[in-house]
């Protein structure tokens, strides 16, 4: 009696488990399907792309499609630009946020909270709410159509200061006492003790910033005039705009789209554990 009851429970649980797996597989498939479709079509010839009914097999045109996107549409050049800019902003933001958070957590000084709030309020100031004067200002510095315009205005980070401050406050205070007894100054304390203890937060910060800068659209569109200095997202528009005969080569367009999405995706995949843990730490309990 008891045994059969247990078996029934076991079967019901197994059934539920199976259902759960099926549900998750379907969800993952539906979320990924648009990109999978783009990936498959990026390997097909134009004839295959326009065939009816559509084929979902890998085609032979991948080398050609990717080569055209890379060379003829200069995605290689745009990618290099975007790498330099996203790398510079990510490193610069992380360093500046670390320094600011060090000041806010490990020093006592007048107007400390006020200055923190001053930084935090900038969260409410995305580019579009200041775009016209920012455009004027950056051009008055002579930075119009230069990479300075894409880096310097982005180096201050309320998100970064907030994340690192939050993380530093969760580190035991006794550490500072020990450091001071050993005669370690604040800068050595930061590099040798705090930074190694903050790798999750630094990883999360790197993902957030790199993805954000890589995926920017509006600001580079207006401030960069010459194609060889442009960022890669704006290059997408050339690929999906109609070609000379009003017909567009979708295989090349999708190859370009895949190239464009790859770097932030790789950064995200490599750092996703830190990203998730960095998130969990930032939650206020």
């Amino acid at each position: 009696m008891a045994a059969s009851k247990r078996t029934a429970y076991w079967y019901r649980k197994r059934g539920m488990l199976l259902l759960l797996h099926v549900g998750l597989i379907i969800s993952a498939f539906l979320i990924s399907a648009p990109v999978l479709f783009a990936l498959i079509k990026s390997t097909q010839t134009t004839a295959q792309i326009f065939s009816y009914p559509p084929t979902f097999a890998i085609g032979p045109a991948a080398p050609e499609n990717y080569a055209i996107a890379w060379k003829d549409y200069h995605l290689g050049r745009l990618m290099l630009n975007t790498f330099i800019i996203a790398g510079a902003v990510t490193v610069g933001k992380t360093l500046m946020s670390l320094l600011a958070a060090l000041a806010l957590v490990y020093f006592e000084f007048p107007f400390k909270n006020l200055l923190f709030v001053f930084v935090l309020i900038t969260l409410m100031m995305p580019i579009p709410v200041r775009i016209v004067p920012l455009f004027d200002l950056v051009r008055s510095f002579g930075w119009g159509n230069t990479h300075w315009a894409l880096v310097i205005p982005f180096l201050a980070s309320a998100t970064g200061v907030f994340l690192f401050r939050q993380h530093f406050m969760s580190i035991p205070a006794s550490l500072v006492d020990a450091a001071r007894v050993d005669g370690i100054g604040p800068m050595r304390f930061l590099w040798q003790i705090l930074v190694p203890m903050s790798m999750n937060t630094i990883g999360a910060m790197a993902v957030i910033q790199f993805v954000y800068i890589w995926n920017q659209y509006l600001w580079p569109l207006i401030i960069i005039a010459s194609n060889e200095k442009q960022m890669i997202q704006i290059g997408l528009k050339m690929l999906t705009g109609a070609g000379p005969e009003g017909m567009l080569n979708w295989g090349v367009a999708m190859a370009g789209t895949i190239i464009t999405m790859l770097p932030p995706l790789i950064v995200f995949m490599l750092l996703q554990e830190q990203f998730m843990r960095g998130f969990a730490l930032a939650e206020e309990k």
């Binding site: 500046m96 320094l99 200055l115 900038t122 200041r130 004067p133 920012l134 200002l137």
Partner: peptide
């Protein structure tokens, strides 16, 4: 030292965020 550490962040916030918003 704390003011020096905060200076880069505060300066860039003032120049590229607060000032353009006020100008807007």
């Amino acid at each position: 030292l704390p003011y020096l550490l905060l200076l880069p962040t505060l300066a860039l916030c003032a120049i590229f965020l607060y000032y353009p918003v006020i100008q807007t």
